[in-house]
Nucleic acid binder design. Structure first.
Lengths: 188, 188
DNA sequence: TCCGTAAGAGACGCAACGTCTCTAAGGAGC
DNA sequence: GCTCCTTAGAGACGTTGCGTCTCTTACGGA
């Protein structure tokens, strides 16, 4: 019997977890089913991850690299932000809301990190736009900076159909760009 | 033995579920624990609700009435919106994120209804402001209308501490009011 | 060649699910 | 006031999946 070890085994485990996630979804995914799919025992899983949630998160990380790498840089703020949103939408659509909700419920310490990353991405995009002179300043309130990604995430969480692209454009054109372009201080 | 029936029994059951929810949280709440607290059997619960999620939702509804009743009407748009947000924050804070995530994971068909209600509330608030002449028009894009409540909900979902009131004011002053008051069309 | 680590496999006890069964309380109808 | 029918109260039951524990054995390092 060929016995897998080290990185090779780990890849097999993570792939098994990912495949199981894609086929049956998070709610139906069990440690037993992943172990069986990888032709190994549960202990091998528990030696590496403390529970289902950690295993699935690791599988997700393994399957798709970080969003933070290669921030969109199209030359216009609008397309950059749309690019960011499009990537988020694509990514979460493949996961599906049940997986997301399940993970949120079981791995509560995990989420803040995930979404704080996007703040950095948006900051980069906005700073580039300001450097181009496209917007008056990169000094944008945090709530404005994170509004598009947060609203999209909200949409993904509460909607069970894929997010239509009209929502993405509306978030950019109706919400984000007006807030950063004019930045009209209220007269009151 | 006094045997409870009908509405009286139902109230006891829902109260037991609510108390259990407040004391141990959603993850630790079991049908058995609720039944025991209500001094009854599980079958009495299952005769009324199909599962844990439905029971808890019913308990929440029973404990706190709808938000839609009495929309804030303070005379200024800013205070109205702040009032709406404050109520949302209060309500969700008593529940806690684990309960919310747990419910979302187990009762996926439930959520859209809940958050579409707030759209109606915001529409009312904005229409009143337009009628007062406080803002130029009540014809506001849907994404703008729902931005504050959605962003707050997002914040509640991803944060594990209570939402500070500075976030509420920022959502109103930095995001919402600029979008509805000037509504400056971008020059480009 | 020997040894120690960990893979592969599965038994185990536990917790909670949701179903099923049983007894008896207490309204409704006569 | 008696009978009947619904259903409360209680808990047994089988199932599932968790996370732990145990055992044998492959294999890489010294």
């Amino acid at each position: 019997m060929e016995r897998r070890r080290g990185a090779e085994l780990e890849t097999v485990l993570l792939d098994a977890a990912w495949d199981e996630l894609m086929e049956v979804g998070y709610a139906q995914l069990t440690m037993e089913s992943v172990a069986a799919r990888a032709h190994t025992g549960k202990q091998v899983l528990y030696r590496r991850w403390r529970n289902r949630a950690e295993l699935v998160v690791a599988a997700m990380r393994h399957h798709t690299g970080s969003i933070v790498d290669n921030v969109p840089d199209t030359g216009t703020l609008r397309d950059d932000v749309l690019g960011v949103l499009q990537r988020m939408a694509d990514r979460f659509t493949t996961l599906g809301p049940d997986t997301i909700h399940g993970l949120m419920a079981e791995a509560p310490d995990l989420d803040p990190e995930v979404y704080r990353r996007m703040t950095g991405v948006m900051r980069t995009v906005v700073e580039r736009a300001a450097a181009r002179g496209e917007i008056p300043t990169a000094d944008v309130p945090a709530q404005v900076l994170t509004a598009p990604t947060n609203l999209l995430r909200h949409e993904i969480f509460f909607t069970h159909e894929p997010v239509p692209s009209s929502i993405l454009t509306s978030l950019v054109d109706d919400v984000f760009l007006p807030l950063v372009s004019g930045t009209p201080r209220r007269s009151g």
